[in-house]
């Protein structure tokens, strides 16, 4: 068990190190996020009350669009020099490989989100600090759901033609329940209202989504990687 954890964190550390060294995905993702934030301001009046009402949706759209750029690189990174073969033929179990990569992606996505959030607040005049604990929880849960789904599909599409197109096509419909819940929860939080009553159902949905897809991913990853 400790060996499993050590291998998992070794993979995560390796992915983070090589990503932070090249910054390929992070740079692309951050600049893309900024462009989307800018584009939204043309779509509607950024100061109106209406913006406030859909702020959660906007924010998570930015996260989802920018996030897929990071997730796409996750397994594609291993294609160079056939590194994926070396990892699969090593004694590292598939789930450790998967979870390691998912953790690396999780950290990267959360980092990007933490950069986007204040920018979003400034651009659209939203005081996002009203419910910091709840907001952090929703971001942690929602991002994990996105990460798990995205990482599995990154492995699934790694050898395919048109990989860059395939991933978003397949991944967004599956992510929708997770994104929907996050959006529903984030909107009141950005208006500094706490989560209570009926809204807790969305939190449960997020937790359920995370658990079920993590379990599915861990059981299916060996089938995906070894043909």
């Amino acid at each position: 068990m400790t060996r499993f954890l050590r291998q998992m964190f070794t993979i995560a550390a390796k992915d983070l190190r090589s990503e932070l060294r090249t910054k390929e995905a992070v740079n692309a993702s951050l600049s893309f996020a900024l462009v989307i934030l800018l584009l939204f301001s043309f779509a509607f009046d950024p100061t109106s009350d209406m913006t406030r009402e859909i702020s959660g949706g906007l924010l998570w759209l930015v996260f989802a669009f920018a996030g897929v750029l990071v997730l796409n690189r996750s397994f594609a990174r291993e294609l160079n020099n056939d590194c994926l073969d070396a990892l699969i033929s090593s004694p590292v179990p598939g789930p450790a490989l998967f979870l390691g990569k998912a953790i690396a992606n999780y950290v990267l996505l959360l980092g990007i989100e933490c950069v986007c959030l204040p920018i979003f607040g400034i651009f659209y005049n939203i005081h996002w600090t009203g419910q910091p604990a709840w907001l952090a929880l929703v971001m942690l849960l929602g991002t994990w759901g996105m990460t798990v789904v995205g990482t599995v599909f990154s492995a699934l599409t790694v050898n395919m033609r048109l990989r860059e197109l395939m991933l978003p096509m397949l991944v967004y419909p599956i992510m929708i329940p997770c994104l929907m819940a996050s959006m529903q929860l984030t909107t009141p939080l950005l208006a500094s209202e706490p989560i209570s009553g009926d809204m807790l159902a969305w939190v449960r949905l997020l937790v359920g989504f995370d658990i079920i897809f993590t379990a599915l991913a861990v059981t299916l990853i060996d089938t995906v990687l070894v043909g």
Binding site: R6, I11, S18, D85, A86, S89, S90, P91
Partner: peptide, 29 residues
């Protein structure tokens, strides 16, 4: 117990030589 040499060199371009070998040494525990 197995070692593999395939068509690709199977080391990471963006890591140093030492980091590459240490990575695989850790993965092989």
């Amino acid at each position: 117990l197995t070692g593999i040499i395939g068509h690709g060199i199977a080391v990471y371009d963006e890591l140093s030589a030492y980091e590459n070998l240490k990575l695989f040494a850790e993965l092989y525990a």
